[in-house]
Amino acid sequence: MNVFDRNINFDALMKFSQISRSTQQHLKNVYSSLTICMLVAGVGAYVHVFTRLLQGGLLSFLGSIGLMIWLAMTPHSLETEKKRLAILCGFAFFTGVGLGPAMDFVISVNPSIIVTAFLGTSVIFACFTLSALYAQRRSYLFLGGTLMSGLSVLLLLSMFNMFYGSVMLFKAHMYLGLVVMCGFVLFDTQLIIEKAEMGDKDYIWHCVDLFLDFITIFRKLMMILATNEKDKKKEKK
């Protein structure tokens, strides 16, 4: 064996022997839809930040929730595929608009944080996705209970902090939320694989799970970076 031979077999890297061909095709559809959602959400955020034609807030939140419910109630079939894709794009658009207020705050601190947070989120999402794809099947599904407990803790922290307004609790909520959502990328990816292997090929609805994971990680990371930057500016003063 030549220890200096560092040639990489890229064909081997792209093989997912534990995933059937039909599920691999399903995943391609999921991630293609996810890419479209990212672009449409970017347009929604642009509309809020630069045009002010739509404002992120209660109405955009209700719009995204309404479209998600409509998507969930629309059956998955070839006849409804285009309709459901249009609903998905509408959901992504209003979700992007809903990011507007958080982005306004970040821009007031340092606009470059948005780019940094997006790149960081992309790296985090890609790493955890690849970990889930290459790991043994079902190996991360056990995280479901732990992650739901984490969400319950986050909800309690949020409710508790509504009355006390603690900066420390706010930061703890952001960091814990980031960790929990990274775990959901692992869990949701493997859950989508298992559903596909069982015959559930609704790639549009599966895309919603990963899209929400990405957006939540982006929001958390963006706020963490902005808060840290703001604290540094206060210390300099």
Score class of each variant (00 low, 15 high):
residue 118 F to P: 00
residue 177 G to P: 04
residue 79 E to W: 00
residue 178 L to E: 12
residue 154 L to G: 01
residue 69 I to G: 13
residue 99 L to V: 13
residue 84 R to D: 07
residue 130 L to M: 12
residue 104 D to C: 14
residue 84 R to S: 13
residue 167 V to P: 07
residue 175 Y to I: 13
residue 123 V to E: 11
residue 103 M to F: 13
residue 177 G to T: 03
residue 95 T to L: 01
residue 115 V to K: 08
residue 128 F to G: 07
residue 133 L to V: 05
residue 57 G to L: 04
residue 107 I to V: 08
residue 102 A to I: 15
residue 80 T to Q: 05
residue 123 V to N: 05
residue 158 S to Y: 15
residue 141 L to H: 14
residue 143 L to S: 09
residue 151 L to I: 09
residue 128 F to R: 08
residue 153 V to H: 08
residue 125 F to M: 05
residue 176 L to M: 13
residue 149 S to K: 15
residue 90 G to F: 12
residue 64 S to L: 01
residue 173 H to T: 08
residue 155 L to V: 06
residue 88 L to D: 02
residue 122 S to D: 09
residue 91 F to N: 01
residue 66 G to E: 12
residue 122 S to H: 13
residue 103 M to Q: 11
residue 165 G to W: 14
residue 164 Y to V: 15
residue 162 M to G: 15
residue 79 E to T: 14
residue 93 F to N: 00
residue 59 L to S: 00
residue 98 G to R: 00
residue 119 L to C: 10
residue 116 T to D: 02
residue 84 R to K: 15
residue 175 Y to F: 14
residue 150 G to H: 09
residue 116 T to R: 07
residue 130 L to K: 02
residue 173 H to K: 08
residue 87 I to D: 00
residue 171 K to W: 01
residue 86 A to D: 07
residue 95 T to R: 06
residue 140 Y to A: 06
residue 98 G to Y: 01
residue 99 L to P: 10
residue 121 T to C: 02
residue 91 F to S: 01
residue 104 D to Y: 10
residue 129 T to E: 11
residue 142 F to S: 15
residue 159 M to S: 10
residue 90 G to E: 03
residue 68 M to Q: 10
residue 105 F to I: 09
residue 81 E to P: 10
residue 152 S to C: 03
residue 113 I to A: 04
residue 166 S to C: 03
residue 133 L to C: 10
residue 98 G to V: 02
residue 112 S to H: 09
residue 187 F to S: 05
residue 140 Y to K: 11
residue 63 G to H: 08
residue 81 E to N: 15
residue 63 G to L: 13
residue 155 L to H: 03
residue 67 L to S: 10
residue 185 V to I: 11
residue 100 G to N: 03
residue 143 L to W: 02
residue 67 L to K: 03
residue 186 L to V: 03
residue 86 A to P: 04
residue 170 F to A: 12
residue 98 G to A: 01
residue 182 C to I: 08
residue 60 S to E: 02
residue 79 E to D: 11
residue 112 S to W: 10
residue 127 C to G: 09
residue 155 L to D: 13
residue 92 A to Y: 14
residue 131 S to Y: 05
residue 184 F to T: 02
residue 150 G to W: 02
residue 156 L to F: 05
residue 132 A to L: 12
residue 111 P to H: 01
residue 148 M to R: 04
residue 185 V to Y: 11
residue 114 I to G: 03
residue 67 L to F: 15
residue 126 A to D: 07
residue 69 I to V: 14
residue 128 F to S: 14
residue 173 H to L: 01
residue 116 T to F: 09
residue 176 L to A: 14
residue 64 S to H: 08
residue 80 T to F: 06
residue 94 F to Q: 03
residue 132 A to G: 11
residue 134 Y to E: 00
residue 102 A to W: 02
residue 75 P to W: 11
residue 139 S to K: 15
residue 167 V to S: 07
residue 122 S to L: 06
residue 77 S to Q: 06
residue 127 C to M: 12
residue 69 I to C: 07
residue 170 F to D: 04
residue 62 L to M: 09
residue 170 F to K: 13
residue 172 A to K: 09
residue 123 V to W: 14
residue 164 Y to R: 11
residue 101 P to R: 04
residue 131 S to I: 01
residue 113 I to P: 05
residue 66 G to I: 08
residue 60 S to H: 13
residue 160 F to H: 13
residue 149 S to E: 01
residue 166 S to I: 10
residue 83 K to A: 15
residue 163 F to P: 06
residue 134 Y to G: 04
residue 163 F to E: 06
residue 88 L to Q: 01
residue 134 Y to S: 12
residue 101 P to D: 03
